[in-house]
Amino acid sequence: MTRVAVLRYPGTWSERDFAHALSLVDGIESEILWHEDADLRGFDAAIVPGGFSYGDYLRAGAIAKLSPATRELRRFAEDGGAVLGSCNGFQILCEAGLLPGALIRNRDLRYRCDWVHVRVENDRTPFTTALAGAVLKLPIGNGEGCWVADPDTFARVEASGQVVFRYADARGAATEDANPNGSLGNVAGVANEAGNVVGLMPHPERCAEGLLGGTDGYRMLANLTSVRHGTAPALYR
């Protein structure tokens, strides 16, 4: 059994959707943890879901990074634990310095609620193990999804294979038209250097069953069935 912690901050809105999506996968059990007393001991993976933590005040994720959960996530990640941040969770992990870059306002200033395609660029993460080269159809819903980094960081992220997901068309071509928000290099998701912490703007939890228009989120979360804390890091990157 893979044990997955789903964190909840004030303003998080996707934690129940993640718990539901994870409940569809045989071999995974999940628990929603309040951020202030999140203890990740005994868990194999942790998820930081989307929403508007602390109302997105100051910057998306800027206040949430001060939560005690950040220290616990850092400890867990340094110990090789698998961490996934989606949407606001991605923003929080970037603000906390667990992932490179930052998320700024979308190119056209619009809140984008849509389906996008992403190409899996790196299958050496706990969330993409069985998805080498796959093109996934996933929903987005965000106003600040434009990933940016300074030129040195961007070059390093590209060179070391830390780009995990790239916006692409349905056939997998990473075109300008397929980029919903102006992200540098069409980046939709990145990993840390070790490969065990991953963030992405799309919402895998919102497409884990056919009724919701797609099951590619299920395909992503199902990778966790083989994740056991303390055994996996050598696989990544």
Binding site: I104, R105, R107, D108, L109, C146, V148, D150, P151, G182
Partner: peptide, 13 residues
């Protein structure tokens, strides 16, 4: 302020 090399979509609007 956004750094000079970072796009400022609000400023552009």
């Amino acid at each position: 302020r956004p750094k000079a090399e970072v796009r400022d979509p609000q400023g552009e609007a």
